[in-house]
Amino acid sequence: MNSESVKQELKIKNKKVKENRWEKEIKLFLRHPLGMIGFFGVLLLILITVLAPLIVEPVAGYGAYEDKLLSPAAKHLFGTDDMGLDLFSQVIWGTRSSIKVGVIAVLVAMAIGIPIGLFSGYYQGIYDTIGMGITEVFLTIPMLPLMIITAAVTKSSSINTVALIIGIFSWPSIARITRASTLKVCGMQYIEAAKSLGIKTRSIIFKHIFINASTPIFVNLTIVMATSIITESSISFLGLGDPLTYSWGKILHNAYKSGAFQSAWWYSLFPSIAIMLFVISFNFLSMGIRDALNPKISRE
């Protein structure tokens, strides 16, 4: 058997295994109640994000003086804020900002964390020391003072900037997990086989290692998604977020700073529920995926 045909066979086998695996895993996932709750929660959030313009008009600036701090009623389902603006609209459009922050943060974190983890895990030695050294350093940098400094050096504190920063500081956990599962996969025989067959290193790393090491990474990404929203909320709550974009944290910040934190309960309640829903959905989804992909559970 020459090496070409071995490669061919490996490919076909891989594909087959994958098809079977996915089928089994989807079944497992469908039977995971929490996973399904998370799935529908995330689906709902995505739908709201996409359909926001059809649900309610966005608000901006300020409303009418007599509309200040109205409690929930038919006209304003979630009540109004101290600028006389509809809170339902803010929470709905806030979903968009939150998903946007989550997606940007996750993409940035992936772009940095995955290559570092893969190279550290594959090459080991000095590369590992440097890669994990940088990771450790980033883990120890306190986020908040950095945000303050960032606000000083960037021209604007737009929601994209905030998302970017969150991404830049969320990658270490991804890098660590990628490295760990890369180490595990690297020790497998098929990688050795691939190496001895003279397959290009790039191909080995991205095709054979990354694909097979991706389960825990993927689970971790959903967690990064959830924590990025918490982080965004904290930044906004401190008043360092984008003043013109309504995110849930920003609404909470406005509520707290309004001086009516106790009396206008609706002001803080609805964005809090939204944050909770988001974080729980993504956490449940990650639990479902993790359990479905866990080989121990699959074998049962």
């Binding site: 901006a60 300020y62 303050i148 021209k155 604007s156 008043g239 013109l244």
Partner: peptide
């Protein structure tokens, strides 16, 4: 960012200046 009134002033000024064609980028710090 610690002065909540100023943040609201900024939001109002953004609208005010927009009405005459000037863009304001509010920057809390």
């Amino acid at each position: 960012n610690s002065v909540s009134e100023h943040e609201k002033v900024a939001r109002i000024l953004v609208d005010n200046m927009k009405s005459i064609g000037i863009e304001i980028v509010p920057t809390p710090m």
